[in-house]
Design a protein around this nucleic acid. Structure first.
Lengths: 120, 120
DNA sequence: TCCATAAAAGGTTATATAGTTATATAATCG
DNA sequence: CGATTATATAACTATATAACCTTTTATGGA
């Protein structure tokens, strides 16, 4: 048998992974995560920080919490939300690097024109 | 100046990152990527491998190509698609690990019940 | 107990897009 | 050139969901 057998990934797993990515595919949610990077915040704090509406924000927080990215800690009349899994930021950084690389590569292609005007 | 200054990430960057994740948030596209892991394939190959409709598949391939994840190489009457950036698979693995960890943690919580029935 | 504030839940609308069917483009071969 | 095969595009439908508004729940203080 071969060394790297290419088994098909089960649809169940693909679905779970797709769902995870879907959670990260909204600017508003990335904004929330970005703000929470500094530490726990209440919903009100996040309303001020992000400019999102309270109801809308609350729903996004629910999505993020159910996906296991945030934890919710009620405190009196407020609720603090906090990053649970810092993996998110690693993922974002990797993606940023990838996008950056791609743009650089594309930029280089356009430099090929220079060889016309600057030949000896 | 502080050591770890928490600058806000620009909306432009957040949008690009969100778009990238959005590309990965569909089971059909993950399926395509998963199949292409073994090597380049034509559209027809992928129709057979994934069971997706040809038109539908073609659209997904366009999305994946425009996002910089795949490359397209016409060959005669066919077109070969190929993974460009293996980062995708690293991302998927990380996400799978995260999901797995979370499920294990949840499972442990339910084991707390055992202490009732099994005490000396 | 009543009030004020914080957060969540419910309902509505607008928009994006996955999937399907039908058609168009393009390349190879007779 | 006409026929065939492989891909891509266009138009359409159905569904999901983000944003907004309103209402409800819950907590702490007067």
């Amino acid at each position: 048998m071969s060394d790297t057998v290419t088994k098909q990934v089960s649809p169940e797993v693909l679905m779970a992974v797709a769902d995870y990515f879907k959670v990260l595919s909204e600017v508003s949610r990335l904004q929330i995560l970005s703000n929470l990077r500094a530490g726990p915040m209440t919903v009100n704090d996040l309303v001020d920080a992000t400019g999102l509406g309270q109801a809308n924000l609350s729903k996004h927080l629910k999505v993020l919490t159910q996906a296991g990215l945030l934890s919710r800690t009620p405190s009196g009349v407020s609720a603090y939300y906090e990053i649970v899994d810092p993996l998110v930021f690693e993922l974002c950084e990797s993606v940023c690097d990838s996008i950056s690389d791609r743009l650089l590569q594309q930029a280089q292609k356009f430099n090929q024109f220079k060889s016309f005007s600057k030949s000896p």
